[in-house]
Simulated assay, not measured.
Amino acid sequence: MIRVLLADDEPLTRAGVRAVLAVEPEFEVVAEAADGHEAVQLTQAHQPDVVLLDIMMPKLDGLRAAAEITRTVPRAGVIMLTTFSDDEHIATAFSSGASGFLLKTGDPRELFAGIRAVAEGAAYLSPKIAKWAIQNVNPGRPEARELVGALTAREREVLALVGQGLSNAEIGKRLHIVEGTVKVFVSAILRSLQVSNRVRAAIIAYEAGLVDL
């Protein structure tokens, strides 16, 4: 069972997402929040596996709520729900600590896939948002190559697989190492790259040429 907290200031949106998730028995909505401040409090209280956060919310917007949630409840994966009218916020959202980015207008199957991926410790971008991110990535960026050049050979292998969207368990199987060791590598990579989350690390992997666009 994947425990989900849903945060959106529009009751109809919350009801719609809740109804979509009810189709799959593996998902359980444990709490709902109408603003970012409440989302932080309820996440701390319920300790969900995944938090679905609207970017634009009162009292505390989704970006700041995501940063606070990842700081205080690091076990909870955060997925930002957005529309393309929020595209000016997407770049900022990449540094919020969120591990997933989904369009509210996307296919419900994307929602299921995103929640499953983030619950397993992977990053997930809606295909349209991924396309936007790639278009704003500069392959071969010198700064990215320099950052990646400071990693060990094994860390670069792990980073390349993070860039492909693999979870820690999947990376462990691919490299024949235990999941705990992968977590250690990922933590070291994030520190070396000076980023707070796997999405930013994946973008650097693209920029450095470790992942084929």
Rank of each mutant, 00 (worst) to 15 (best):
V4G: 05
E10W: 09
P11I: 00
P11L: 03
P11D: 02
T13G: 05
T13P: 00
R14V: 07
R14P: 08
A15C: 08
G16L: 06
G16C: 06
R18A: 14
A19C: 04
L21S: 10
L21G: 10
F27H: 10
E32H: 08
H37W: 14
H37Y: 14
E38H: 05
D49L: 09
V51N: 01
L53T: 02
K59L: 02
D61V: 02
G62L: 03
R64V: 02
A67P: 03
V73Q: 15
G77M: 04
T83P: 11
T83W: 06
S85G: 14
D87Y: 15
E88V: 13
A91G: 13
G97V: 03
G97Q: 05
S99G: 07
F101R: 08
D107E: 12
P108T: 09
A113E: 12
V118S: 05
E120K: 14
A122V: 05
A123K: 00
A130Q: 15
W132H: 13
Q135L: 13
L151S: 03
A153Q: 11
A153M: 08
R156C: 04
V162N: 00
L166I: 02
S167C: 02
G172H: 06
G180A: 12
F185P: 01
S187M: 12
S187E: 15
A188C: 07
I189M: 00
L193V: 01
V195P: 10
S196M: 06
A202W: 00
I203K: 12
D212K: 15
